[in-house]
Amino acid sequence: MKRLTQENILAVALLCFFVGILVLSLDYSPRARLVPVPISVLGIILLGAQLVWQNLRSPDELHVDMLEFLTRRGINPVEGAEADDASSADQSPETPAAPGDLSVFSREVFAFGKVLAFVGLFLLLGPFPSVFIFTFAYLSLSRHYHWAKALVVTTIFVVIVYVLFVEVLDIQLYHGVLEPLVNNY
């Protein structure tokens, strides 16, 4: 997908967000909507301008903008190297050549998926079992450590985090959706 298309999709999505806020705000009392309404209208105007601006600029200018984007965030653009490749251990990947758009996209999907998986575990099992599973899985599946070493590192980490949050900070635990099934409450 072209960068411009992506930018347009995002801008339209944000536009929808502001319109939604505006519609919701109109239901509120005059004082409650005093600030939200002007802000959402401002957002709509700004995004309208942004849409026009990014679509009407000549390809040259767009190119300049892209270049600026690349140089300023020179370190950030996504680099290659497979997710679970052992070679990515210890030193940074030495593949400056820009990878195909697809691989970036698939890694992004992976990143989103990992966060989602972690949150899902968290909801199901509660904080510490999920941290244990996630960390152990991440360390061993990325082959950064041998699974035995990963297990040791994970255990030490979980104990430290547990002591800090539960013992030192007295956090009350959430036991996860599954706990009632295990415990029958």
Partner: peptide
């Protein structure tokens, strides 16, 4: 095993605390 480890660890610490 994960359950056991975490629960066991939690128990030991909880006993000390409560």
């Amino acid at each position: 095993t994960i359950w056991k480890t975490t629960i066991l660890g939690a128990l030991v610490l909880a006993l000390a605390a409560f």
